[in-house]
Amino acid sequence: MTVPGPYPGHPAPGFPPHAPMGQPPVARPPRERGKAGFVLATVGAAVVALLCGGAVGGGAGFFTTEPEGSETAQPFPDNFPHGDQQYLRGVTVKLVVDEWLKKANDWECESREPREINGRNADVMWCNPPGDASSDMHVTIVYEADDKVREVDATCWEGVGAKPCEALFSTMADTVFVPQESLRGKAADWAAKNGGTERFTVIGDIRLEANLDPNGMRAIPAV
């Protein structure tokens, strides 16, 4: 059976171009070529989709997500410094000035230049013994209100270790510890013994500080 040739009149020799006789044809069969193209296109599309999807999804996830976390701070621990600690607990100007200095010892008091503390003015009260002893000792009280006493400071010029100084420091400690009744004796005792030093102690929530230059005893809140 003869192979059908080109239609009559066609000049082609009947062989594919560039394919010498006896050799396989160079071009792949159309079926294989189509399949390869399809695979290539699909893989290419998948890679592009992977990159686009990854970039868009990743960007969206990153930029639209708010981190977790509370909008408020954690609670304060009990010993975190508190505004209430600025003042000697339970101590009033009346207690120190009226009860201790004026009533019991006939001292005289006057207001002095206010001090600025925490951006606010704190009043200062200056008290002396009457008469000849007026320059031997003094007590200053720093306060913002009658029940907001920041500091009570006793100073004595009678000489380090002198009995009047010891008595002054001791009674001052006794007074500021009136609201902490159980600690009064301990505080007064410590003040009497350490008035001639530069030691400090914390008793209850009050800090007692002894000074030598000048010789004094200071009661301030502990923190």
Binding site: T42, A45, A46, V48, A49, L50, L51, C52, G53, G54, A55, V56, G57, G58, G59, A60, G61, F62, F63, T64, T65, E66, P67, E68
Partner: peptide, 22 residues
């Protein structure tokens, strides 16, 4: 295939990056 890959990649990377950001 492209759509499936796009969605899968998008969702996966969204989940990963948003959990990272969170």
């Amino acid at each position: 295939v492209a759509v499936v890959v796009l969605l899968a990649a998008g969702i996966t990377s969204y989940v990963v990056s948003s959990s990272y950001a969170r």
